[in-house]
Nucleic acid binder design. Structure first.
Lengths: 224, 224
DNA sequence: ATGACATTGGACCGTACGGTTAAAAGAGTC
DNA sequence: GACTCTTTTAACCGTACGGTCCAATGTCAT
């Protein structure tokens, strides 16, 4: 069974475990594992032991670095929003004509949400909890504020040159973009069950994407 | 403290509890209580004892009529969908011109979702669970099939008389209507935190409603 | 009036799970 | 080499919660 051979007094082996201290990496590892688990099962459904199993470390370390399950969950949320903000801020729209900028923003949002299902799921979970854990932090407000600002900039330019109607507000446009792009990911399960997964085949998804773009642009453009 | 007075040997009182047998009412009462609790806290977050507390009966009866928590949850879902289907089927759109019918359908859906937050929340919860509990039942498919049929009827007439573009499918329209109306309720908490609850003041909500209608109609109408 | 079903209520059970404890020892810093 | 912070391991604790049991009594149909 074991490699014991000629154990003549030599405790030998004793691998003398060597490891590097790296608090930040451990924290990050825990946060990533927790994000997966929370996105998968929600706050209440998530199991701390399961989070631990997903890490390279142990349950003990989770409590060493994070107060309790709920605090961990809040850190995960914050981290998720922070990451999204970072990704979104790399978009440069100011060089495009207003409607082109808007189109690009919609495309980006659609694709981004699509590619970040676990972020969407975290937000769904948090909405089920009525935003109780978001309410404390100001991070979300900041992230969304910057999203609004982006749309605002487009609107300002477009309303200036007449390519965007005067009666629509940045917040309304943002709301609509979010709604279509978010729902496309969040309600996929129930929609899939009702209409078959083929709705989300590449070609059909492309149609939904085009539809989304058109809906937003139609509402932004001045009426005929 | 108590009303004990002149208790001379009279066990009297003994209200001789009288009650009516009414299995259906008890079942319905449990389902209603469970629906509230599940909508409020999700499947995992809901507490069976809490459901019991919301009923006029006891935990014991919950298990008398329903196998276990998950079965109860599934019954609640089914019941919710059944109810919605009933409400929606009262809509008569066939007498209206296609675009008017579409507008009315959007208005109805917007208002209906708005007024049935707990139904929306149940669907959110179920989507967090990836539709695992919906997958077994065919009820949802039937409900949504009838929704599609309604849109289909409008599309057919509209494409006939040219008021609705040929390139849009009923499923796509339904998807879009659902997205906007659903999101308006489901993501209210996170949106409210970011932008303030005033977004949902009556006048602003009316604007969102109008925006929703316009977006759908724009996408349905033939392009300029 | 018999028997099947409905209802009540409370004590109870098993366990899954959030969180803690212990003790030891390596890493990093000065 | 002394001191603090980090990491490892695994057993352990307390309890909240899903679910059961008991046992009595009422209802209702035949």
């Amino acid at each position: 069974m074991s490699d014991i051979e000629a154990v003549d007094e030599v405790p030998d082996a004793e691998p003398k475990r060597r490891w590097k201290q790296d608090p930040e990496a451990v924290r990050a590892n825990i946060l990533a594992a927790a994000a997966e688990e929370f996105a998968e099962h929600g706050l209440t459904g998530a199991r701390v032991s399961e989070i631990a199993a997903r890490t390279r470390t142990s349950k003990r370390m989770i409590y060493y670095y994070f107060e309790d399950k709920e605090t961990l969950y809040r850190r995960v949320l914050e981290e998720a929003y922070r990451k999204v903000r970072g990704e979104e801020s790399s978009l440069d729209l100011s060089s495009l004509a207003p409607l082109d900028a808007l189109r690009k923003l919609v495309e980006f949002t659609f694709d981004h949400h699509r590619a970040n299902e676990s972020f969407i799921r975290l937000v769904m979970v948090e909405n089920v909890h009525k935003g109780r854990h978001l309410a404390t932090s100001d991070l979300i407000a900041r992230v969304n504020a910057s999203a609004i600002e982006r749309v605002h900039e487009i609107c300002a330019r477009g309303q200036e040159d007449g390519s965007i109607r005067a009666s629509v507000t940045p917040l309304e446009l943002h709301w609509m973009i979010s709604a279509l792009c978010f729902f496309n990911v969040s309600n996929r399960p129930s929609f899939g069950i009702s209409f078959g997964e083929h709705l989300f085949d590449p070609e059909n998804e492309e149609r939904l994407r085009a539809l989304t773009i058109e809906a937003v642009l139609s509402v932004a453009r001045p009426p005929r």
